[in-house]
Design a protein around this nucleic acid. Sequence first.
RNA 1: GGCGACGUAGCCAAGUGGAUAAGGCGGGGGUCUGCAAAACCCCUAUUCACCGGUUCGAAUCCGGUCGUCGCCUCCA
Length: 497
Amino acid sequence: MKVFNTLSGQKEEFSPQGDVVKMYVCGITPYDEAHLGHAMSYIIFDVIRRYLKYRGYKVKYVQNVTDIDDKIIDRANKLGISTQELAEKFTASYFADMEALNIEPADIYPRATEEIPKMIEVIQGLVAKGYAYPAQGSVYFRVRNVPDYGKLSHRSLDAMRSGMRIEAEEGKEDPMDFALWKASKPGEPAWESPWGPGRPGWHIECSAMSLKYLGNTLDIHGGGQDLVFPHHENEIAQSESFTGVKPFVRYWLHNGMVQLGEEKMSKSLGNLITIKEALDKYSADAIRIFVLSSHYRSPLTYSEEILEAAERGADRLRYTANTELDDPRIKYNYVFDADSYRHRFIEAMDDDFNTAKAIAALFDLARDINRASESGYSVAQAQQVIRELGGVLGLTLKPPQFKPLEAEPFMELQKAIIAKIREEKLDHVIEKIASELDQPDTGVKTAEPYINSLRDIRNALRSEKKFQLADEIRAELDKLGVTLEDTPRGTVWRRKR
RNA sequence: GGCGACGUAGCCAAGUGGAUAAGGCGGGGGUCUGCAAAACCCCUAUUCACCGGUUCGAAUCCGGUCGUCGCCUCCA
């Protein structure tokens, strides 16, 4: 199994330190709704984690929640609520989004505000070793003491200094030095520290948390490409300087950015599609297929058209995964063997998580299952394989959840149709089902019984070759979002996409 | 300005030196059906931004041109 390591800039053979893969992925700053960029990142690392487990590894997955920082303070002030309240609200919202996207929860979600002692311990250690210095109530990391600073983002300190667009903060020895601890201004949330009241800098929490929950060396550290510099670069500097152990991380994995039109989707640009907005229109499976159908390190462009395409693709996989294709009345002589597709899938995923190729194998498998089924093979086992492999990608392949249908329009339609039947003196056609139709209103609020009875009426009309009225029922149901399909095993209906 | 990535069919996208350039969506034709739908079958890039070069052989390697994007500042 090979993975692309940002540190080396190459694909490397993956070999974790032990039986348990130690995996850390940068989490959110909960001050607003999560958007598709977050969805991409967390779907990808969810798939990586699922795949590692599929390949027999145990995984310990830690994801932080940055529940205190400048943006949280700003937003909380604007809304007139506490930072805590704000962070809790959007953390809960984020967890709901993750669940809706079928992303498995991390084993641990440490909160920055709950890990202050560990952070202070690390900062003190860095100060003691000369890697950090206090200044005006803050503490800064001394970048020039780390000779290999820049190794992850592949740039030199000199190049970075020349590209600096902001002025050096007061108290810093070097413009590239970054804050480990920030002195608090009056009125801001603050924690006691050896340097006075303040709050942690952004980068230190990941170092402290990964150290505390996963140890000195992680196997996998993930995040978006926009975190490579400065965030992850700084994490390396802090962690390796503090522990004296290299490497801090064996494999650095970074996903590409979601684009909206020509630009990166980001909070600062305000060109966001939130996960909730996307889920209003598309199934979780479609969103996952959208994300996984290109390579995780490439940029991903969002458009309605592409999501539509993903949804239709999801429909096809769902059909093959869930339709009862084997006829229980038949004794099959031939069984369709899906093993070669599983091998293709694994081969693709082993090559730096080539999910696009893996999905292609899934689509081939779906088509070949359908074909084999039509040719008289038993395909139930192969259907199990497609569900298994879909599961590795976190696809449920279940029918998408729709808002419940309103009963009213279907009730009206049924009345109208019955009226027409009586008008055309076709009562006898529906005699058999007439008795149940005439039952008094039992206060049923769901649409399903009405759809079922309309389907039965239509079938009764079809058997009498009254196709005009039968087709009218089908057309009217279609308008109400219900598609009828006449299959060899009877007429089924499903929600229209 | 510095560093990096990318440019493959109408759209999305895999492929990074060799035999017919994956897969999805869309489009066209067909099978099935009373008609549909779904499913299945066939067709839909002689060519991989452009120009040169290396090679018996290049979408794939090298050089140049054009174009797009990311990072260098909070960001998944």
